[in-house]
């Protein structure tokens, strides 16, 4: 895996523009200048961390899935313990044919949140920049973790599906509680959950990545799984 700071430095300008709402038009040089300085602040403040683990995936009769963990019982016999149950039509299409699944969580740490809070006091317009650039950075970081997971899968002869997060399609946000517990996110990467299932630090992502033994195109990702159906300010042009 590459050095996280180096990964973040490689963030795509176009993605930042997209999160700022510039879909077809390029921002002017003044806005670009603010992007530069806010990006630098964020790179200084970010402490990218990630944790991931892989599990066996068992499919149920009703289209549900179970994420299971093998353990040895007292007699040395392997038994399967269910870590997480997945009831989601959108995810079911994504996981169809998968035998294993990776759970991942990634964060930029508390630094970016602090920058946003400071900007709210002294420079409100910068909050929007920090938010947008932060979104691009966490996605960049997730992409790197995802690539690492794809690589791990390939070593074991497995093919990865596009990552899928709680809150996408009909995959319930309640799963965040399971992610917290299974990946021990507070201890490992310093991410906690509010009662309303919001992750803090804000620039944090959890996702599932299915693994199958056969290579199979998976059409269900990007704007296609979103209930907004690409009808929003952040749509990806290639998806819309």
């Amino acid at each position: 895996m590459r050095d996280p700071q180096e990964v973040l430095r490689g963030v795509s300008r176009k993605e930042i523009w997209r999160y700022l709402g510039y879909s077809r038009i390029r921002p002017d040089s003044r806005v670009d200048g603010v992007i530069d300085s806010c990006l630098e602040d964020l790179l200084q403040a970010a402490e990218p961390r990630a944790v991931w683990r892989d599990f066996a995936l068992r499919s149920g009769e009703d289209g549900s899935f179970a994420v299971v963990r093998p353990e040895l019982d007292g007699l040395g016999q392997e038994q399967e313990l269910v870590e997480m149950e997945l009831h989601s039509r959108s995810l079911a299409r994504n996981l169809d044919g998968c035998c294993r699944v990776y759970l991942m969580a990634a964060t930029l740490g508390q630094g970016p949140d602090r920058l946003v809070r400071r900007a709210q006091i002294v420079h409100l317009s910068h909050t929007v920049f920090y938010q947008a650039i932060g979104a691009a950075l966490i996605e960049e970081w997730c992409d790197e973790v995802n690539r690492e997971i794809i690589r791990e899968g390939r070593e074991r002869g497995l093919y990865a599906r596009p990552r899928f997060s709680p809150g996408y399609g009909d995959l319930p946000l309640e799963l965040q509680r399971d992610f917290m517990r299974i990946l021990r996110m507070q201890k490992e990467i310093g991410v906690t959950l509010t009662d309303s299932l919001l992750m803090t630090p804000a620039k944090s992502v959890t996702a599932l990545i299915g693994m199958s033994e056969t290579k199979q195109a998976c059409p269900v990702h990007g704007c296609a799984v979103c209930p907004m159906g690409g009808d929003c300010a952040y749509r990806r042009e290639e998806d819309a």
Partner: peptide, 8 residues
């Protein structure tokens, strides 16, 4: 005009 300029 986009949100960043509006806010500035």
């Amino acid at each position: 005009i986009f949100l960043p300029q509006l806010l500035m």
